[in-house]
Amino acid sequence: EEWMVEKALMVRTGLGARQIESYRQGAWIEGVHFKRVSPSGESTLRGTTWYNYPEINKFIR
């Protein structure tokens, strides 16, 4: 699984929702560690946020 939603990321990493938000707003790079995608497939600020687990795992190492 490369891309996953927040709940799956929480299960895989043990991070809480606030921790994920903090990383997203600070250290993680949009387009690398996470992306927002609307149902139409376009990038957007209001779409579902998807997280790239392999890239996040590399960051944590």
Rank of each mutant, 00 (worst) to 15 (best):
P54A: 10
A17E: 09
K7G: 12
R61G: 08
S40K: 08
T44M: 10
N52C: 06
T13E: 02
A17I: 12
N57D: 14
G26W: 12
F34I: 03
G14R: 05
E42Y: 06
W28E: 00
G41A: 09
S22H: 14
T13P: 01
T49S: 04
S40I: 11
R18F: 09
R36Y: 15
G47S: 12
A8Q: 12
I56F: 01
R12T: 06
M4K: 01
V11R: 12
T48N: 07
K35P: 01
E42T: 10
T48R: 07
A17N: 06
F34A: 01
R24E: 09
Y51K: 00
Y51H: 00
I56C: 04
R36D: 11
I60D: 03
H33D: 01
G16V: 10
L15F: 05
E30I: 05
Y51R: 00
V32L: 10
V32D: 02
I29K: 08
T44K: 09
S43G: 12
V11F: 11
I20V: 06
M10L: 05
G41H: 10
N52I: 02
E55C: 04
E42V: 09
T13G: 02
R18N: 11
H33F: 03
K58I: 08
I56T: 01
V11T: 09
E30V: 05
M10C: 06
R61A: 13
L15M: 07
P39W: 10
R18K: 14
I29G: 03
V32T: 06
L9P: 00
V5S: 15
V11G: 07
T49L: 15
N57W: 13
R18V: 11
G16P: 06
T49W: 15
W28Y: 01
I60Y: 04
K58A: 10
M4L: 11
I56E: 01
I29W: 03
Y51W: 02
V5L: 15
P39G: 13
G14K: 05
E2Q: 09
P39C: 10
I29F: 05
E1G: 10
G31L: 04
F34E: 01
E42S: 12
L45F: 08
E42H: 10
A17H: 13
W50R: 04
G16Q: 13
N52T: 02
G26P: 01
T44L: 10
K58N: 09
A17G: 06
Q19W: 04
E21P: 01
W3S: 00
V11E: 15
N52K: 02
H33I: 02
F59Q: 04
L9Q: 01
W3K: 00
I20A: 01
K7I: 09
T49R: 04
A27Y: 11
W3C: 02
S22V: 11
K7Y: 13
M4A: 02
V37E: 11
Q25F: 07
E1L: 07
K7C: 12
Y51L: 01
A8P: 04
E6N: 03
T44F: 10
K58D: 07
L45H: 12
R46L: 14
R18H: 14
E6T: 06
Q25C: 08
Y53M: 05
P39H: 11
W50Y: 14
S38P: 13
S22M: 14
Q25S: 09
E6F: 10
S22F: 15
